[in-house]
Structures are given as C-alpha cells and as structure tokens.
C-alpha cells in the first residue's frame, strides 16, 4: 500500500498545535503516514505597494520565510520527528485556503487537518474565514480542531 499523506495547517496558535497533535495520533494509528506541516504567510500579489516596499520586498520575503521556519515550522517538525513521525515542513506566501487545497491535490493527500480560527475582521465576518473557505472548496476530507 502506498504511503498516506496528511496535511496540517499551522499558524503559530494553540489551535494549530492541537491540529498537529491530532495529526500525530492519527499518523501513528495509520502507520505508514507522512505529515506535511504547512505554514502560510498571508500575502496577495494584487495588493498595492509603494516603490520603496517593492525595492525591499525580496529581502523582506527571505526574512519572513526564515522567521516562520525558525519559530513555528522548525520546532514543530523537530517535535514530530522526535516522536518518530515522518514529517516535512513547508512555508509559503499566499492565501491559506488556496495553498492548502493546492498542496493536497499536488501531493495527493488523503486529508487536511487545521485548527479552528475565529473571524478576525469584518471582511472575514462577511465572506467567511479561512477555515470556512477551505471547507467549502476542498476536494479532500477536512478535520477542523476546535
């Protein structure tokens, strides 16, 4: 039987940690399971920026990627590896729902596990938060951890 892949969305919050714990338990039960830990830095190519921001964008992006690896993904990967899980950490810029869904397709994941996130602002109240959009668009089963 081929290896099962499970995607876990991290956001540095406690809910994200609980999602990882849930995934680790499931992975151990499944046996041959690979966990993909994904941290998404919210970013849109269609936002408006000043010339100075554009000039420094490349450097800033590197910084953001390093910080995310250092503070969130790196420690989570270490922790999961220490428990004997097969795990890989990924940091991407973009829309959380789109990236998790895209990766699920590309890596043929069997499910996505995310922590529940509250609606953070008016826009999310009106159009739904990340979790809601992900559930609405996903092609694989999703587990939302409260």
């Amino acid at each position: 039987m081929s290896q099962t892949t499970m995607i876990v969305g991290l956001d540095g919050s406690d809910a994200g940690k609980r999602a990882l714990d849930f995934a680790k338990t499931r992975a151990k039960l499944i046996g041959d399971c690979h966990i993909l830990l994904v941290y998404v830095i919210e970013w849109s190519p269609f936002s408006f920026q000043t010339a100075e921001e554009n000039e420094k964008r490349h450097a800033r992006r590197e910084e953001e990627l390093n910080l995310a690896h250092e503070r969130v993904v790196g420690p989570a990967v270490q922790e999961a590896e220490a428990e004997g899980c097969s795990v890989e950490g990924i940091v991407r810029h973009g829309d959380v729902a789109e990236i998790l869904e895209g990766l699920a397709k590309k890596r043929e994941a069997s499910q996505i596990v995310v922590g529940r996130m509250g609606e953070r602002n008016m826009k999310e109240r009106l159009f739904g938060g990340v979790t809601g959009r992900l559930v609405a668009a996903s092609t694989v089963p999703i587990t939302v951890i409260p």
């Binding site: 830095i41 970013w43 190519p45 269609f46 936002s47 408006f48 920026q49 000043t50 010339a51 554009n54 964008r57 490349h58 992006r61 953001e64 990627l65 991407r92 810029h93 973009g94 895209g102």
Partner: peptide, 17 residues
Amino acid sequence: TDPNDAGEVSHFQALTT
C-alpha cells in the same frame, strides 16, 4: 508567475506602483 516566487513583487504590484 512561478508559484515558488509567491511573496515577491508581482507584475501587478510593479504596474500599480
């Protein structure tokens, strides 16, 4: 745009700036 370049200055951003 290469998806691996996400987070860099996009064509849209350079144009609007």
